Amino acid sequence: MVNKYKVDMVAISEPMVNKNKVEGYKRYLGFNQCLVNSNGQIWCFWRNNCTVDNIQIHDQLVTFKFQQNGSNHDYYVTIVYAKCTAAKRMDLWHNLEDLDNSITSPWLGSDHRPMLLKCFNDNSVGIKYFKFLDFWIDQDDFKTLVAKEWQVEVDGNPMWRLQQKLKNLGRRLSKWSIEEIGDVNENADEWEAKMEFLEEMDLIDNSKTSREELNKGHAEYVYWLNKQESILKQKSHIRWFEEGERNTKYFHAVIIERRRKLEISRIMNNKGNWISGEDKIANKPVRYFEKLFNLRESNVDPQILDCIPECITDDNNNYMMSCSEEEEIKDVVFNMSTDSAAGPDRYSRIFYYCCWDIITREVVEFVQFFFIKGKLTKFFSTLFWFLSLK
């Protein structure tokens, strides 16, 4: 349940485990905080993205106030481990009555019954754009999925067909990644916590079984770390001429610094004065280009171009304007750096290398259509394919 629903808080009644092991289970489950009642029959775990205030800790119940960070709403939760006889449960009922008289916010409780609670509004959904992740090509079923999706026929000219096939494939890959792979960063953090727990268990048990579990856990941890490293490499846009030691802090720093450099905090106007503030910065370039592109038409004598010597012959021009053949297009694609940033279609160069045998026809027809018509849709950029074709 913890992994499937990514819960922020879990309470366990009668865990049937010595309470001294609660810290190990906290790390194993991937939580940051925990508490145990006096007789060890109620365990509670929660993450740092929520606030938990203890209201009452008793041998038959634990009550706390729960609030997610960024939320203004409080929730009271009571976890019950009741005694077996009515006489021994009298203290429990008195405590519950006192709580009922004092709590005015939403309050819920459970006695052994499994319960899953969602206590936030998920109506706001931001736009999340597709981006091809390079580690996808290492998945066993990746090329099978691409080939199957690529076989779906799309009507229209070659430019439209490639555009729609890339869009359809992007939606399918995003869904496949969520369902089959999951959140890489969360899985890496989860296995890091599990490794700490397995290492502790191996030190305690020191058996063949514990060592096997530790080795299996280590392999799984490295598996997710490699995926996480691939994403960080891709985001940092660093060219890796040599594979070095893993250093995720370095890549995070590079990403943050790159974003900082791209941020515009102020601009200078034509009078030499600095302008700050998002609205003023956004409006200034708009007014500038509106003025620039609305100038009066000027009369230019076309003979002024006669003084420029002709450097391009008709043969050169005809060659530049001719359609490229498949091998020429393939050479350009395969000579592009795998470390360069993705194009406007959000696919990295590795995708085209890996899937060239699947997508060849659509890409070649797209390029040839461009040379015939000389136009591109907004989905594509001229820089994407054509700078080095000739």
Rank of each mutant, 00 (worst) to 15 (best):
E297N: 14
I231G: 02
V367C: 15
L133F: 05
R113H: 09
Y81L: 06
W43H: 02
P309C: 08
G156K: 02
G374T: 12
A11F: 09
G217P: 04
A193I: 04
C44T: 14
Y76P: 01
D183H: 10
I12W: 05
R361Y: 08
K19Y: 13
E186S: 11
R47V: 03
Y319R: 14
G109F: 14
K291R: 08
Q368M: 10
L96Y: 02
K233T: 04
S340T: 14
N123I: 11
H218E: 13
E328P: 03
C311A: 15
N215L: 14
Q56V: 08
M115A: 06
K261D: 15
R258A: 06
E243Q: 15
I57A: 06
S174M: 05
M195T: 14
C355H: 07
A342E: 13
K249M: 11
D8Y: 05
L173K: 01
A193C: 12
S265G: 06
F197I: 03
I204T: 10
G126K: 01
Q368G: 04
K194D: 03
D91K: 07
F351T: 01
S348A: 11
E213C: 10
V364H: 00
S210Y: 09
I329R: 00
K165E: 00
I304P: 03
K227F: 06
P114T: 04
F64E: 02
K208V: 14
K208D: 10
N95P: 00
K88A: 14
I264R: 07
S210E: 11
K390R: 13
F380M: 00
E278P: 00
T85A: 15
L225K: 15
Y25K: 06
D314Y: 08
Y129L: 14
N185I: 15
R211N: 13
K227E: 08
V36I: 09
G70E: 01
G277C: 11
I12T: 12
G277M: 09
